[in-house]
Amino acid sequence: MKSFTRIETTLLPLDRTNVDTDAIIPQQYLKSVKRTGFGVYLFDNWRYRDPGVLGQDPRQRRIDPDFVLNQTTYKAAKILLARANFGCGSSREHAVWSILDYGFEVVISSSFADIFCSNSYKNGLLPVTLEEAAVDYLFKQVAQDPAFTCTVDLETQIVLDANDKEFSFEINEFHKYCLLNGYDEIDLTLQHADKIKLYEAELKQSCPWLFR
């Protein structure tokens, strides 16, 4: 997994609550058997006016110029600034893959859906939860000045903005450790392979009907 330590960048504001993973990446793209190449389909139903198909050249699509992702002002942003309950709905990891593939490294919101969050950690995308007032503040700053930047530092768990305003965020120690080091959770788990085998042997005795 790719690691995450620190980033200083502009923000792309997506001012909607309850952005579901169907909106992040619609169903037709889930037919891919690959992990890559989903960035061009990110927010597809909002970004394009015509319905797309997997593998289609995006230059042939009709874009919606009003949608924030199509505004050149925010092209360089690596932080997606979102609203409450971001990533709700389907468990599709393609949502995280498309956000990363598009070029974002951080999503800031006042809350995230559970499965989206765990999918993010496993791919090196950092979900940063801030108080709603802080998120409101950031939306205001970005609206006033699209070149407004923030630094997100995982080690210190701080978002520092261009006005030197600081917001600290919480993150589970384990996820922080994996993100900072780019660790693969499977490797970490397999260090406990003996414990898993022991548990399994005991389970076979106590609940034999679980094995077939």
Partner: peptide
Amino acid sequence: GTSEVEHVLAT
């Protein structure tokens, strides 16, 4: 998610 699917398959 799919990473977790792989994790369960493997461990």
